[in-house]
Amino acid sequence: MDNRGLSPVVGKTLAASIAVLYVAGMTALLLNGPVPAGQTAAGGELGERVLATAAGHVEAAIPDGDRRVDVRTEVAMPATVRNTGYTLELRSGRLVLDHPTDALDRETRLLLPATVTVADGNWTSTDRLVVRVAGAPGNRTLWLEGDR
C-alpha cells in the first residue's frame, strides 16, 4: 500500500518518455526521407522556372531597331534555390543552371537571331544579373554581367 503513491509518477514518466521517443523517431524519419525529397522536387521546379525566366529575359534583352546599341538589362532573380546559391552559365548558345545539388541542374537553348553572338560567361546568384547587348545591328554580342 506504501508504493501506491508512485503510480502517477511512473505513469507520467512512461507517457512522457514514450512521447519523446515518438517525436524523435518521427522527426528522424521525416528528415531522412520525404523532407529532402520534397525540397529537391520543389527546388527542381523552382530551378526550371528560374532558368525559364532567365532565358526569357535574355531573349527579350535583344533590342529591335537598326542602330548601334549598348544596353544593359537588369533581371531580378532569386538568390537561392533549395537554400543554396547557384550559377547560370552561358555555353555556346545554351543557358545552363548549375546547382550544388546535381539533381537540380538544368539547361535550355536560347532562341536568338543568327546575328547575335553569345559570349560564354558565368553569373553567380549572389550578384545582380545584368544582361548586356552591344554592337551594330548585324553583329550584336550578348553577355551576362554580375553587378554587386
Binding site: 521546379e45 526550371e48 522556372r49 532558368l51 525559364a52 525566366t53 532565358a55 526569357g56 531573349e59 527579350a60 538544368r106 535550355t108 537553348r109 532562341l111 537571331p113
Partner: peptide, 13 residues
Amino acid sequence: ALDRQAAVGLSER
C-alpha cells in the same frame, strides 16, 4: 516551364 518559355519566346519573335 522550359518548353513553355521556348514557345512564348518563339511566338514573341
